[in-house]
């Protein structure tokens, strides 16, 4: 290449080159303008060097244009959208999500009574649906798939009971204290926004802004969990405090975000949004998954996984799907 490398073009020449590029890019460009551009180009080595960079950028785009332009466009727009929604999602909230990690916890829901309670609950969502509500005190709730919540407000206090599933709470301004009760314990939000999920074997609380006080249902253990931290707990005990997972609240936007998460865990999560059985073969359950998956269309999420990983989606029966190693 000609010219002193490392020196790079000066900003002013780059700016001019970009302006020439904009002028030449229109179909109304005249021969006179083209000649003027050539004069500019030949006027100085700085100009020529700057123009090389404009051409290099042009080549990158040309490569995309020669391939599948629509696909490239779709990719870039999607990446942009994801960034936007992530930025919005991270504004601050607390997540309490149930996990299967507290094996051996003494207390557990048996599915049947849980189902019966859910049917009588004040608000509930069926599998695969999410719902947003605003309560009389301005508190906003987002119910995740297969979830149910009871309300109990009186003059002194506000009480929400998570009967099953997961809820994100954005507390309204109100002098009365607000408590959220789950099968595993009580939460008193000291911040503004938090999200709760309970599963059969315990719960997880992640706090993104403010703080939440946890108190276990039977052990009576208490802890204040500050922003950016998370704990797992069951009816007896609270586990160690660790860093909060920033992707855990993405469900409010209909997304499941995985950052190096084992496939088995991801599938367990996806299964919450579908009827029927969704299984994963042990050979592939440990594959790390990275990416963002739609919760509103789990079939598409599965198709995406199938493309990204050496697996195939096997539909044994319409309601029975398993993920298996791809045929060699």
């Amino acid at each position: 290449m000609s010219g002193g490398e490392g020196a790079g073009p000066d900003y002013h020449s780059l700016e001019q080159a970009a302006q020439w590029f904009a002028l030449l890019g229109d179909d109304t460009v005249t021969e006179t303008q083209r000649r003027a551009w050539r004069r500019w180009l030949n006027a100085s080595p700085d100009h020529r060097r700057a123009w090389q960079y404009v051409e290099a950028v042009g080549r990158r785009f040309a490569r995309l244009r020669d391939g599948d332009a629509a696909l490239s466009d779709g990719t870039l727009q999607r990446a942009r959208q994801q960034r936007l929604s992530r930025r919005r999602a991270l504004k601050g909230l607390a997540v309490l999500a149930g996990t299967g990690l507290l094996a051996g916890a003494g207390w557990r829901y048996t599915p049947l009574p849980s189902l019966a309670r859910a049917w009588r609950a004040d608000y509930r969502t069926p599998v695969g649906q999410r719902r947003a509500l605003t309560l009389e005190d301005g508190t906003r709730l987002w119910l995740n798939t297969d979830s149910a919540v009871n309300l109990d407000y009186d003059r002194q206090r506000r009480r929400l009971t998570l009967v099953r599933g997961q809820v994100l709470v954005d507390t309204g301004r109100d002098p009365r204290p607000l408590d959220l009760i789950t099968g595993d314990g009580e939460l008193r939000p000291l911040g503004t926004r938090f999200d709760v999920r309970q599963a059969d074997r315990g719960s997880r609380l992640s706090v993104y802004q403010g703080a939440v006080r946890v108190r276990t249902a039977r052990g009576g253990e208490e802890r204040r969990v500050p922003a950016g931290r998370q704990v797992r707990f069951d009816g007896e005990r609270i586990g160690p405090t660790g860093p909060a997972d920033p992707s855990a609240e993405a469900w409010t936007h209909g997304l499941l975000v995985a950052e190096e998460r084992p496939l088995g865990e991801l599938v367990e999560e996806l299964a919450r949004y579908r009827h029927g059985h969704l299984g994963v073969a042990p050979e592939v359950a440990g594959l790390p998954v990275m990416g963002t998956y739609p919760l509103d269309d789990t079939d598409r999420a599965l198709a995406m996984l199938e493309r990204a990983l050496p697996i195939r989606v096997r539909r044994v029966l319409p309601w029975w799907v398993t993920l298996e190693p791809a045929a060699p």
Binding site: G67, L71, T75, T292, R307, A308
Partner: peptide
């Protein structure tokens, strides 16, 4: 993130053509 966005966009194509592995890496 880009790879996942690309996969998602690919999944949405009416008739996705499966690009070769090298093409995919390059694109």
């Amino acid at each position: 993130e880009i790879e996942q966005a690309w996969l998602a966009a690919l999944a949405e194509q009416p008739e996705p053509l499966a690009p070769s592995a090298e093409d995919r890496v390059a694109v």
